[in-house]
Design a binder for these strands. Structure first.
Lengths: 214, 214
DNA sequence: TCGTTGGCAATGCGATCGCATCGTAAAAGC
DNA sequence: GCTTTTACGATGCGATCGCATTGCCAACGA
């Protein structure tokens, strides 16, 4: 059914990566819905609508299955942010990129929420499994770097206060986006509230609107 | 052994609350170490060094045991913050209270870390169990209120920019403290780094140090 | 055409799960 | 002193766990 037509370089067998991604998607749904406790081989098979033997065929151990799950989660948010960035005009400024990425995190879209909740469910594993830790937290540096760059640019443009520490401000911006994203995903606050707070902060730090430069 | 001497108003039986708190402590240790997946009746009994029958005697169901666990977690942080506040001089300012509370959250003390990690482990349950949700997130409003009060006070004192929105700034302060506390507890950053960022932010918003008022 | 391989489904294993039940020893009340 | 209640420890139940094994079937190479 799924491989009745194909154009890949390996036509003789099914698309292994696609199968694994399908199962990893089921892992994410379960993890987001009720935590990693609910993720068993049988539950994943049932969620994906396949047999348990299939799950075992594509993942040698449960640990490997969970690792593919968290990797898919990160690919999903990257993809969603990437899609949003393609809606921006070419050569968009770093600030536009930053605001677009944060808007996606706080957007309260079901898939974004699912990925965030699933990620949080993996936090405990990150303490035990170094690979999970790396997948979950490894990309933080570049995000902070982007935010710091935006602050520096705003300073160079004379919009932001030159007394600001770009590194600290970048760290604050992403920590804030992180915290608000989790709050939205877990229903502690609304998307509108979170976005309003985030925009308020960015506007103040980056000096948008009626704000006299130094 | 445990009730050879007592002074309570009910001398005829053991201290039920103390027993439950002892078991709930074992729940927290397990949850903080490897998530709620690792919390089973048998594991809790083993962690507490008692029989499984004892655990069942004090908690009718696993759900009830978990609920006592998260309640103990919240009482623990409240107690730790309370202890820290007692080290402050009498009639300490709201700002001193705020800074002390945040310092405790970012202090990287083992017990604080344990409580934070355990709390995060409960996030998934909060979506299913309304009681857990309330225990975990119910106190957010008053914390935000304290932070907002501090901002308003700083504005009244002429230290903080009167253009600031106290409610938004209070929300930002606590979201930031929340995020940084989790990062410290899960080893994403160091206590020193988090505290430096938090103090940097508070000093800027509240206008401490060499900062000209409006 | 035939043997080999990949892609599964099915089944079974020992361990562990939450929970219920039973037994018992000590204390409390009459 | 005798009954009742409290505070457990011990054991067992059916379900589920991760994982290993087995078997079948379609697709491919020779």
């Amino acid at each position: 059914m799924r491989s009745h037509c194909y154009a890949g370089p390996v036509p003789r067998k099914v698309d292994i990566d696609a199968q694994r991604a399908d199962l990893a998607g089921a892992v994410l749904r379960l993890a987001a819905r009720s935590g990693l406790e609910a993720v068993s081989l049988r539950e994943v098979a049932a969620e994906a609508g396949v047999s348990m033997g299939r799950v075992q065929h594509y993942f040698r151990t449960k640990e490997e299955m969970l690792l593919h799950g968290v990797r898919l989660a990160m690919r999903r948010i990257d993809a969603r942010i990437g899609e949003r960035l393609q809606c921006l005009p070419d050569e968009a400024s770093p600030e536009q990129i930053l605001r677009a990425a944060i808007d996606e995190l706080l957007g309260d879209h079901p898939e974004t929420n699912q990925v965030i909740r699933a990620s949080v469910a993996y936090y405990a594993r990150a303490q035990v499994n170094a690979e999970v830790f790396e997948v979950l937290f490894g990309d933080d540096d570049e995000l902070r770097g982007l935010a710091a760059l935006v602050v520096r640019t705003a300073q160079a443009d004379g919009r932001a206060d030159t007394g600001l520490d770009p590194a600290q401000e970048g760290y604050i911006i992403w920590s804030l986006a992180d915290s608000l994203g989790v709050k939205v995903a877990f229903g502690q606050t609304t998307s509108e509230r979170a976005r309003a707070t985030m925009h308020y902060h960015l506007d103040r730090v980056l000096g948008c609107g009626a704000h006299p430069g130094v």
